[in-house]
Design a protein around this nucleic acid. Structure first.
Lengths: 226, 226
DNA sequence: GATCGTATGATTGTCAACAATCCGCGGGTT
DNA sequence: AACCCGCGGATTGTTGACAATCATACGATC
């Protein structure tokens, strides 16, 4: 009787709603700065305000929602400094993930080639949305490969914010080929077990992203600007 | 009329309760694995179950509480693999913070000497609790210095988990002098603007901590064990 | 005697009503 | 015209009650 099944009913209502709210923010149907009316949302989800409020508290903790007591909950709007901060945080998480993959078992890094191929084909048929999807999938899979619960949880939040950036700034940013190439180089560096190279490539990849999103600025320079 | 005051009433009830719950977990009065009875806790906080449940959802999102639907909420108990994971995550966050401090403005790193001194004096009068306090304060201040909202938020959660480790394993771990020395070296490396050295020292500092907590094992080796 | 089924108590999940706060509008005053 | 005051509608915060689920103990059956 040793069949290793996973327990049923493992997700609470608040968890489900939280996931959907995250998705709504990702797609932009909940725009940055928008207020989340409890009555309206509760109606849409077909639940009462109780479970909805519990779910929203999760996103507050994630930093995806901002709470103004007695006034309401709002989708955070990302200031320019947040763009730097976001990508700096991603650099930290993803570099750590890459190192961990290298030190434990670099072999399954090959899985990343599937996301890489998907991104290539999306680029060929010039489908910006699909390109972004594959792009982010690459990064999220990388962190998932590390097997770290904590890195994965942090990454999930950062992914949502990344998409907020992309849709807010309306930049599915060009230079697709360059990004694909960079991804490939990262995979190879990890497969080769070269920590220094992998982290350097990741850092540069992020630098490029920030430059594309907020031209003329750079990572790790948030103090000099407002 | 340009006095820059910060808005009043900026914290919701859920936020306050969440903070107290976090504190209760750090002190160990909410032990790992313990169930959080809603009725009992609500009584202690003198609120109804609604706001309490909202607060608890925040900790679930942080990974400090584990939710078993229709059964209850429990304080997570840290498995051996979590110790590795925790310190790997801390390495990621703190290294990134150090780098960011170096690249923006290394000067205020001097503030860390106060925590360093506090740790030294606590060591002299052989007060293990005060040593741990000063130790963690050092690390948290380092991340705060980075000025990164995201790194700071992640760090707060990791600090709670770190304390859970310490109290659970009953190791305020010895070698106090060694740790103090390491802290000093980290400060100097940052002040000197040496990224490589600072991150290397931080990583080694974490390695040592893991070794002290779970002897015979090492960071980044979670896959080889169960 | 072991196992299954059932009843009971306790706990969690959900809801709708009530209280408190905030926002906008109109009236009045200077 | 600008400002202050206060009212009404709307939204958020909180509560206690109800429904659903789970854990435990007891008794029946094989």
């Amino acid at each position: 009787m040793e069949l290793d099944v996973e327990p049923v009913a493992r997700e609470s209502t608040a968890g489900i709603i939280a996931r959907q709210l995250r998705a709504a923010i990702t797609t932009g149907s909940l725009a940055p700065g928008a207020q989340l009316g409890e009555a309206e949302l509760a109606n849409q989800f077909q639940v009462s305000r109780g479970p909805l409020r519990e779910a929203m508290q999760r996103l507050v903790q994630e930093g995806l929602l901002r709470s103004e007591p007695h006034r309401g909950l709002f989708v955070v709007d990302l200031e320019p400094e947040d763009v730097y901060d976001l990508y700096a945080a991603r650099t930290a998480i993803e570099s750590a993930a890459a190192i961990r993959v290298i030190r434990t078992d670099p072999r399954p890094v090959g899985e990343l080639w599937t996301a890489h191929e998907r991104m290539t084909s999306a680029a060929d048929r010039e489908d910006p949305a699909a390109v972004s999807d594959a792009d982010l999938e690459f990064h999220e899979r990388l962190v998932a490969l590390s097997g770290s619960k904590r890195l994965a949880r942090m990454m999930r939040t950062l992914m949502v914010e990344t998409r907020m950036c992309l849709t807010a700034l309306q930049r599915t940013y060009a230079d697709v080929r360059e990004r694909v190439t960079e991804h490939g180089a990262i995979i190879e560096a990890i497969a080769a077990g070269d920590e220094r190279l992998a982290t350097a490539l990741l850092e540069r990849h992020m630098e490029d992203a920030v430059r594309r999103l907020a031209p003329g600025t750079s990572l790790f320079a948030s103090r000099s600007e407002g």
